[in-house]
Simulated assay, not measured.
Amino acid sequence: MTRGQANLRRQSGAQAVYELMRAKIISGEFRPGARLTEPELASTLGVSRTPVREALRLLIAEGLVDQLPTGGSRVTPLDLADIRRVYDIRARLEGLLARDACTRMTQPDLDALARLIDLMHRLRGDETEVLRIGREFHARIAEIAENRWCDQLLHQIRGHVDRYRSLSTREPGRPDLAVAEHQAIYEALASGDPERAEQAMRVHVEQSATSAAQAAGAVPS
């Protein structure tokens, strides 16, 4: 048994299996369209079939796994139209969060965002870190905005957003562009202009959508 499998056993069963499988789908380790079987997953993860079955149920409800007519399941394939729909919703919601955050921004908030931007610039060659810091930047804006309705709606599509966001960074040059876009969002927020902040956020999300769609076209289903 590997260390990861031992840790998995100590965690809360189905929830731990769900989180692990979800992470593998988002990262692409479980490839789009790949068949998922309970016995194989249970063996690979070192758990019984019961938590695997519950994890699959949660992933099907989230739309990250498809239930097949035969009774099996598979990782939901990538779909270009779906990418556009998800990102359109994300652009509208995150744009509103940026607008709201701009009206509530304090100097300590700006300082915290500035530190993330500085860190992103220094680590711009590491796409994994750029992605991680970007998530933290967006989360901080959402926290400042205090718009629970936007938060809840984004949470409902979070798995798909994370999946396509991870995909978008695979495009050559995309991490560098993402750093520049986050810099533009920060400057818009610092300007105190809510409309500018919303527009900067929407431009960033729409550019991410284009990169995700291009990357999806190069990923076998």
Rank of each mutant, 00 (worst) to 15 (best):
T2R: 10
R3W: 12
N7C: 09
L8N: 01
L8P: 01
R10I: 08
Q15D: 15
Y18T: 01
E19F: 08
M21W: 01
A23L: 05
R31W: 08
P32R: 07
R35E: 14
L36P: 00
T37Y: 09
L45N: 06
G46E: 04
R49A: 12
T50E: 14
V52N: 04
R53W: 00
E54P: 00
I60E: 07
E62A: 04
P69F: 03
V75H: 02
L78F: 05
D79V: 00
A81V: 12
R84H: 13
R85A: 14
Y87M: 12
R90F: 13
E94I: 01
G95N: 02
L110G: 05
R115Q: 14
L116C: 06
M120Y: 05
L123V: 12
G134S: 07
H138Y: 07
H138Q: 11
E143S: 12
I144P: 03
G159M: 09
V161P: 02
L167G: 00
D176L: 15
L177M: 13
V179W: 05
H182K: 02
Y186L: 14
A188G: 05
A197Y: 09
E198D: 03
A200T: 03
H204K: 09
H204C: 04
Q207P: 01
S208W: 00
A218F: 07
V219C: 05
